[in-house]
């Protein structure tokens, strides 16, 4: 471990708290602290609109970053992200079905169900003799995602008027988020804590599976549990906010550079950083861009940064 890692985590906690406060204070409607008392409208905006939205963004950011970290460690592949095993395409299809067939009723439930179903389908396709080879899992994920995308495209083609709604959902965002959604997102914390309990196992698994077995890790069981928990937190995140890209891919990278590869520090650091990033991305979009889908913001910042990382890795 790096000696600076605990300090970094402490700093991230402070930054997150400050970010939450700032995010609540900022918005298209200017609200001064004084007006909170004098204007009931201002209080309503802060309490019923901004605070749940900010908290939901923090939770979703945390979920994506933790699941991304787990996937990259588990797959020993820095290109892995939370969606790699079909979670996002399953979620997207589920949400689209809800929008097209039920006019959007139960959309989060459909999205979550879709995400989990797709993940388990990938898992069972890849499983052979009680084992899930990592390469097969990745390929099954790609294959199933392609198939689900075809279904999705078909639904969009036949969607007619609700196409606009589907497009918005696919790009991801926190419109109309209420306290209900925050409650729905809370299990993310439980799932992330569950993943954290396997931090040491992920450290060892990130070397080599056979080696991990020699060190007393029950490889297949740990892999199963981590896949299930990651799919769960990602599924919840997708249900709440659609599929927001790049947070789950970039955050683990950046945090690995700062706190090192020890997952006992990397998981909390990534969770906090993911929350901070998504809170600020969402604040930017709703304050300055008339509530453009937040996925556009994360991709705009994430992709160039990713290219930068890639280039600097190639130099090293």
């Amino acid at each position: 471990m790096r000696r600076t890692a605990p300090i970094t985590i402490l700093a991230l906690v402070c930054i997150l708290l400050i970010s939450l406060a700032c995010a609540v204070a900022l918005g298209p409607t200017g609200i001064s602290p004084g007006s909170l008392i004098t204007q009931p409208n201002a209080w309503m905006i802060v309490w019923d609109i901004r605070l749940p939205r900010v908290l939901a963004a923090a939770l979703v950011g945390c979920a994506l970053a933790v699941a991304g970290t787990a996937m990259q460690g588990l797959f020993r592949n820095p290109m892995a992200d939370p969606y790699i095993i079909g979670t996002s395409s399953g979620g997207a299809l589920g949400a689209t079905v809800a929008i097209v067939l039920f006019a959007g009723t139960g959309r989060p439930v459909f999205a979550f169900a879709g995400a989990m179903t797709a993940t388990f389908a990938v898992y069972f396709i890849a499983r052979k003799g009680g084992k899930i080879p990592v390469e097969t899992l990745l390929l099954s994920g790609v294959a199933l995602s392609t198939l689900l995308s075809a279904f999705l495209s078909f639904l969009m083609y036949t969607a007619g008027k609700s196409l606009h709604q589907i497009m918005f959902w696919l790009m991801g965002g926190f419109w109309n988020v209420s306290w209900n959604d925050v409650v729905v997102a809370l299990p993310i914390l439980i799932g992330s804590a569950g993943i954290y309990l396997f931090a040491r196992d992920v450290n060892i698994l990130s070397l080599n599976e056979e080696d991990a077995a020699h060190l007393g890790v029950n490889v297949e069981r740990v892999k199963r549990i981590l896949l299930a928990l990651s799919a769960f937190v990602t599924g919840v995140a997708v249900a709440v906010a659609g599929s927001i890209g790049f947070i789950g891919l970039i955050t683990p990278h950046v945090m690995r550079l700062i706190v090192g590869p020890d997952h006992r520090f990397l998981f909390p650091a990534a969770a906090l950083a993911g929350a901070i990033l998504l809170v600020w991305s969402d604040t930017l979009t709703r304050t300055f861009t008339n509530d453009m889908p937040v996925g556009i913001i994360t991709a705009c910042f994430g992709a160039p940064f990713f290219i930068y990382l890639l280039r600097s890795r190639m130099k090293a």
């Binding site: 040491r200 196992d201 450290n203 060892i204 070397l207 060190l215 590869p261 020890d262």
Partner: peptide, 16 residues
């Protein structure tokens, strides 16, 4: 693949 220190790797031997 990841940038562990020598001590990190040796400490993994204590995992069991």
């Amino acid at each position: 693949g990841f940038d562990y220190t020598v001590r990190d790797i040796v400490m993994m031997g204590r995992h069991p």
